[in-house]
């Protein structure tokens, strides 16, 4: 069948199979995290985090040379420090998360540049650190698998507390300050590990895009948090497949192809989705009987 032939590259080459597996894992893991990220109005965290991990990677490089493992680990540590610090500031001062995160990531980036300049390496660390979806080796796949399992487990445990943290944080804090803190910081930890693992395996563009775009698109189709949490990964996976096939058949670079697929889906959803622009315009404001 013609349709099947079109899909054939996905299983004809082992590097495509690996790419697909990597996409499956990251979709399952990062997209649900991205749903909460969007609802907490922290969608720009991804970009900030890509810069914030620099000093960690730099220290990893200084200790172990061009070892991807050391640099990724260093990146995770730096990312966690920045995320937790900005979460702490947001919870205990007048500043909200967006400002505290911006402040810390800038500090972190500057520190990273300083470290690198002082020790004079001309290798662009972040370029070495960021992978590509077509080059997923066993270590990268194992990392993605680990992160996915951790994330799914954590989401299962934290789900109710996390929803309440977003919905009515004072209520949660009054009932259980421990779960309040756990949800708040636990979520930040999930964001960081998903992002850094994503950077390592797939590069910044894809890692951030898979977190942010599917959630944004799903929002135009369903209204409940539970539905968002399964629709976003499904959409992510769909666009990854589309992007991989585009990269093959149209000879496009892979990460941009996947991200363009995600972006196109988002635009379409915004216009045609059940809660998108077009459908909402034709629904007059319904006054509910009180």
């Amino acid at each position: 069948m013609a349709a099947l032939a079109w899909l054939e590259p996905l299983w004809a080459y082992s590097f495509m199979q690996r790419a697909l597996l990597g996409c499956v894992l990251l979709s399952l893991s990062a997209a649900p995290v991205g749903v909460f990220l969007m609802l907490r109005r922290m969608s720009l965290t991804g970009d900030a985090m890509a810069h914030a991990i620099l000093p960690g990677a730099a220290v990893g490089f200084l200790i172990s040379g061009l070892s991807l493992g050391a640099m990724t680990l260093g990146g995770i540590v730096a990312g966690l420090v920045v995320a937790v610090a900005s979460g702490l500031v947001a919870r205990s001062t007048v500043l909200r998360e967006d400002t505290s995160l911006a402040a810390f990531y800038l500090l972190s980036l500057a520190l990273g540049v300083l470290i690198i300049s002082t020790y004079g390496s001309q290798v662009d660390l972040l370029h070495v650190l960021f992978g590509t979806v077509l080059a997923l080796d066993d270590a990268a796949l194992a990392l993605l698998l680990g992160i996915t399992l951790i994330t799914l487990l954590a989401m299962r445990l934290l789900y109710r507390a996390l929803v309440l943290e977003c919905l009515d944080p004072d209520f949660l804090r009054a009932h259980s300050p421990r779960w309040s803190a756990l949800a708040h910081y636990g979520f930040l930890v999930l964001v960081v590990i998903n992002l850094v693992a994503g950077f390592h395996a797939l590069g910044t563009l894809m890692a951030v895009a898979i977190m942010v775009l599917p959630a944004a698109a799903a929002r135009f189709w369903v209204r409940r948090i539970g539905s968002l949490l399964w629709l976003a990964p499904a959409l992510a996976l769909l666009c990854c497949v589309a992007g991989l096939l585009l990269s093959y058949h149209a000879d496009w670079p892979t990460s941009p192809a996947i991200v363009i697929a995600l972006g196109a889906l988002w635009l379409l959803s915004m216009i045609l989705g059940r809660f998108g622009v077009w459908r909402q315009r034709s629904v007059s404001a319904v006054h509910l009987k009180g």
Binding site: L39, L157, L158, R160, A161, V163, L164, C166, L167, D168, P169, D170, F171, H175, S176, W179, R219, V222, R223, R224, I225, L228
Partner: peptide
């Protein structure tokens, strides 16, 4: 109340949290 009115939950979901004291997290 600092409740995020735009959060995608149903009325039942939100009200159900009143029983947190029984079921916890």
């Amino acid at each position: 109340p600092q409740i995020d009115r735009s959060f995608p939950v149903t009325v039942q979901d939100m009200v159900q949290y009143g029983l947190w004291h029984q079921s916890g997290a």
